[in-house]
Design a protein around this nucleic acid. Structure first.
Length: 464
RNA sequence: GCUCCCUUCGUCUAGAGGCCCAGGACACGGCCCUCUCAAGGCUGGAACACGAGUUCGAAUCUCGUAGGGAGCGCCA
């Protein structure tokens, strides 16, 4: 029935580090493409020359790849509709802009930002929407020529047609209707010649054959502008779906203040890409399956009908949950790779493996291993008061008896039996002496990971 | 100010007129398991923003109120 192949896209602006809100948008577009058997395009919207940096572009691509959200078409994966960076698409935009101007569907605007700001303030003060006043809308050719001759530079403004009502069917919000009279003429080419968002974004989607766009709800009210631009150019518009915004735990937009971290920060803290994606998959989208899912499994369960309309709180506690599921699913080898950056480098492989095996069940974020490093590899133990008390209660005799044989964890049960102590009475002081704490990983694997000399020294310290 | 969007347990959500005195997950409490913690199993408390209407019947439809958010940029 629908012969047009599905194409979705993610079109970030490389003006900062990748944040969770953007990641979710990318994820959903990728999932939608996979679900519908289509392609997923990445386009870099770097028209804001001042704020775009190459470091941000590189970071963006790296973060997306690390997350497992690779694109079918885009930078470093060229397809038929490139280039995929708006800064390189000037030749694509120029004729379209010229056409709009020639047909008087757009006009040069000589207003300065100071004038515009003044006008905006005046309208706001008068209790009216701050729209472009139309100062340059009726300038004739002579007047324009005079301004240009006088050295004035112009932006290009799109002329809103009179008496239009725009209708579109939003993928998540359903039918929408907007009176075009409510929209002011807007800039489609800046004074410096770069294309503005409403224009470039809409045009590129169409030119790149994008059929479905999932994007932030902040774009909902502006969608009619893009529809108008595409209509004027005779280009086909994609279907838009506006995702509810992601907020922090306090309900305000995600920011450093409410615990939002960039992808880079999360990665460096040892969070896994699957944990991040699984959480995001359920923020604004419902899924009956509570297991940690791979991208393909998410795609199979992704359904635009299950998209939420209300904004969602990002909760670090829930991130920990998905992280825990992921960590527990790790193979021994994968766990070692994951923890490697957080472990000392000068440790024999066998001991490393033993340490990871012992600590893994008690670790959620990778950074948490650091507090166990002194325990396992040697170093000053910080005794909890309770642990000290437990050790002292057990007495020197206990440690003398136990010191001889503990190097072989397999003998722990026999030793315990010989000590004629109940489980807790035997293990608690042992654990306390070895780790300085009352809680932690199981003792047998812990002992396997600790150098025998370290074990002996820690027990001997209490043997009198 | 104007326009638009939104509103189910603390949080993420199920729910598209009777299946719901509202189900699941996270978090929290209890119990079990267990050398402790974690994990796991069982279990408990916890929500339809408010008010009118429509209907035999409303979390679900309509209107209004309140609250939250977004847009109105030569940012994207």
């Amino acid at each position: 029935m629908n012969a047009v192949p599905v194409v979705t896209r993610f079109a970030p602006s490389p003006t900062g580090e990748l944040h969770l809100g953007n990641v979710r948008t990318a994820l959903f577009n990728l999932l939608l493409a996979r679900r519908l058997g289509g392609r997923y395009v990445l386009r870099i919207e770097d028209t804001d020359l001042a704020r775009t940096t190459e470091a941000h572009v590189a970071g963006l691509l790296g973060d997306l790849r690390w997350l497992g959200l690779a694109w079918d078409e885009g930078p470093e994966a060229a397809g038929a509709h490139g280039p995929y960076r708006q800064s390189q698409r000037g030749d694509v935009y120029a004729p379209l802009l010229r056409r709009l101007e020639e047909q008087d569907l757009a006009y040069p605007c000589f207003c300065t930002s100071a004038e515009l700001e003044l006008s905006r303030r005046a309208q706001l003060a008068a209790g009216r929407p701050p729209r472009y006043a139309g100062t340059c809308a009726q300038l004739d050719a002579t007047a324009r020529a005079a301004r240009v001759a006088a050295g004035a530079r112009a932006a290009l403004r799109f002329r809103i047609p009179a008496g239009r009502t725009l209708q579109f069917d939003d993928l998540v919000h359903g039918p929408q209707q907007v009176d075009a009279a409510l929209i002011g003429d807007f800039v489609i080419r800046r004074e410096d010649g770069t294309p503005a968002f409403f224009f470039a974004n809409a045009v590129d989607d169409s030119l790149m054959q994008v059929t479905h766009v999932l994007r932030g709800e902040d774009h909902l009210a502006n969608t009619p502008r893009q529809l108008l631009v595409l209509e004027a150019l005779g280009l086909r518009a994609p279907r838009y779906g506006h995702l509810p915004l992601l907020t922090g735990t306090d309900g305000t937009p995600l920011s450093k203040r409410n615990g939002a971290q960039s992808v880079r920060e999360l990665r460096e803290a040892g969070f896994g890409a699957p944990a991040i994606c699984n959480l995001l998959f359920r923020l604004g989208h419902s899924c009956a399956d509570n297991r940690s899912l791979a991208i393909e499994a998410m795609a199979a369960r992704f359904d635009p009908a299950h998209l939420q309309r209300a904004s969602a709180h990002f909760d670090p506690v829930q991130l920990r949950h998905w992280q825990g599921l992921w960590v527990r699913s790790l193979s021994p080898e994968a766990a070692q790779d994951w923890l490697a950056p957080f472990l000392p480098t000068d440790v024999p492989p066998a001991q490393r493996a033993a340490a990871v095996a012992a600590l893994l069940p008690n670790i959620v974020a990778a950074g948490e291993v650091s507090e166990w490093l002194p325990v396992v590899f040697g170093g000053e133990l910080r005794f909890e008061p309770e642990a000290r008390a437990a050790v002292e209660r057990a007495g020197a005799g206990f440690f003398r008896a136990v010191a001889a044989a503990v190097t072989d964890p397999a003998e722990l049960p026999a030793l315990r039996a010989a000590s004629e102590r109940k489980g807790a009475e035997f293990f608690a002081p042992l654990r306390a002496a070895l780790t300085g704490r009352m809680h932690g990983p199981e003792l047998a694997p812990l002992l396997k990971a600790m150098p025998p000399a370290l074990v002996r020294a820690r027990l001997a310290a209490w043997a009198g």
